Amino acid sequence: MGFFDGYDIAVSGMSAQRTRVNITSSNIANAKTTHTEDGGPYKRQSVAFQEIMLNQNKKTNETSFDNNKDSNQVNLRGVGVKSIIEDDSDPVMRFEPSHPDANEEGYVAYPNINPVIEMVNLLEARRSYEANVTAFSTHKNIDVKTIDIMKA
């Protein structure tokens, strides 16, 4: 394990959760959007995460310690965004005959977004982001203490 590997893992988690916060915020902001460029109501989106290999493309300097690595050693992993998924659920139909997007029967199609669920998702993403920040800070503090000990 390299000196910066802990940082890379925490940063991958922060990046993934930042995307989740942005998508969830977009869902909340568009909860009442009845007309999009595609012609229908806004469709709720969610984020699918995947495990990713970190530092695959980086060339590392091999040292005598690296040559003694066990062949069964697991590669460094992080988290990334696999895809943004659009919800295929039916829109919520509300009777509002005076609305400009009402159909012939007077119903307006609203996105199937529950603001309470979106707020819970937002809080969960924020807490996960904060946990990654804490891991990053803890790793930094350990490194600073290690350098201080080495100086003494």
Rank of each mutant, 00 (worst) to 15 (best):
E105D: 07
P100Y: 11
M53K: 09
I84H: 00
G106D: 10
G78C: 00
E104P: 01
V74S: 04
E105P: 01
H99N: 12
E104K: 04
P91G: 01
N61S: 11
N67Y: 14
V79C: 04
E104R: 04
G80P: 05
V92Y: 06
N103I: 08
S64M: 15
S64R: 15
G106A: 10
D70V: 11
E62L: 15
N57V: 09
E51C: 02
F95H: 09
V81P: 05
G78E: 01
P97H: 07
D101G: 03
P91A: 02
Q56M: 13
G106V: 13
K82P: 01
N75I: 12
I84D: 01
S98I: 15
V79Y: 07
K69S: 11
L54N: 00
K58V: 14
D90H: 03
G106I: 13
K69W: 15
Y110Q: 05
Y110V: 05
I84M: 02
S89P: 02
F95V: 08
P97F: 08
N55C: 08
M53Q: 14
L76N: 02
G78N: 00
K59Y: 15
D101K: 06
F95M: 07
G80Y: 04
G106F: 14
G80A: 02
P111E: 02
D87M: 05
I84R: 01
G80H: 02
M93C: 05
I52P: 05
L54F: 11
F95N: 03
D88S: 10
D66S: 13
I52H: 04
N57H: 05
Y110C: 05
N103D: 14
I85H: 04
Y110I: 08
S89L: 11
A102Y: 11
E62S: 09
E51D: 08
T63M: 08
S98L: 15
N112W: 08
G106Y: 14
N67I: 10
D87K: 03
D66K: 13
E86C: 00
E96H: 11
E62R: 07
S89M: 09
D90C: 01
A102E: 06
N67A: 10
K59V: 14
E105S: 04
N72R: 04
T63N: 12
G78Q: 00
P111S: 00
D101Y: 12
F49R: 04
K58Y: 14
D88Y: 10
E51P: 03
K82Y: 06
N55K: 14
K59T: 12
E104I: 05
N103T: 02
Y110P: 06
